[in-house]
């Protein structure tokens, strides 16, 4: 207790000293100091506000094994290095696209996140979607039919996410591995996905009376589903991660994150 009292005394003494010191300073100087402090905080807040209003994040999603990590490294380094294995954690990085490094002038870097496709890791997606300027849904065009249902379920979940619908985050369905001869065309994949989602619409709306719900329903009731009915824009494109054929992907990214 004695110590505490001593401390109290010391503190009050220090306060007195500080008070005296402040009185010695001319008032206009004080005002100036206060004004500067207010100005800087405002500036910082403004900066933050502007930064947030223009997201530069592109999220790569898709089933496990569709080639997201390869695309990520193709975008960043222009090479697949020595191949990849199933991801256990998201890859994220902010960089200037490899294809644009030769361009002159100032280019805004893109923040790209590769979210693992394993179903146990999907909750991670919710962390990144709110800041996303665009999402890329990667589909394995080579091995499409066996995974068609799983892919469309994932896509359905993605399209009915609250953050996607509310912010109208544009979506690119990227058919990967098109360098292989037996790969399906993007039109075919698109049609199959629409068909599957149409079926899902029925069963999922039935589930919604249970307590796990998708916040929004898709499409127009009574009409077969097509991607045109989505509130956000949905487009399709081809790519090949292994051979580095990713111009359409880069185009999409630059469309939504202006250089």
């Amino acid at each position: 207790m004695q110590e505490l009292d001593q401390w109290k005394e010391q503190i009050s003494h220090l306060l007195n000293v500080a008070n005296d010191h402040i009185r010695e300073i001319p008032t206009d100087q004080l005002y100036a100091a206060a004004a500067i402090a207010v100005f800087t905080t405002l500036l910082l807040l403004l900066l933050r506000f502007f930064k947030r209003s223009k997201p530069n994040t592109i999220v790569l999603t898709g089933l496990s094994g569709s080639g997201k990590t390869v695309l990520f490294y193709q975008l960043r380094d222009g090479s697949t290095h020595q191949g990849t294995v199933t991801s256990m954690e998201p890859n994220e990085d902010t960089f200037i696209l490899h294809g644009e490094t030769t361009k002159k002038g100032k280019i805004k870097p893109v923040h790209i996140v590769d979210v693992p496709g394993h179903s146990r890791l999907r909750p991670k997606l919710d962390e990144y979607l709110p800041q996303a300027a665009g999402t890329v849904f990667v589909v394995d065009a080579l091995d499409f039919l066996p995974n068609c249902r799983a892919a469309s379920e994932y896509l359905y979940d993605l399209l009915t996410k609250g953050s996607v619908v509310r912010k109208k985050i544009p979506l690119l369905i990227l058919c990967n591995k098109t360098d292989k001869v037996t790969a399906h065309t993007k039109e075919f994949i698109c049609r199959q996905l629409e068909k599957e989602i149409d079926k899902l619409r029925v069963s999922r709306s039935a589930v919604s009376d249970a307590d796990v719900t998708n916040e929004f329903t898709l499409g127009v009731p009574g009409e077969p589903f097509s991607f045109k009915q989505c509130s956000n824009t949905v487009i399709t494109a081809d790519a090949s991660g292994l051979t580095g054929e990713i111009s359409q992907l880069e185009e999409f990214i630059r469309q939504h994150v202006k250089p």
Partner: peptide, 17 residues
């Protein structure tokens, strides 16, 4: 991660299929 289902638990979808 553990409790998130690995396979789809949408029985109605399977029923329709």
């Amino acid at each position: 991660r553990i409790l998130t289902p690995r396979r789809s638990i949408d029985i109605l979808r399977d029923v329709h299929a």
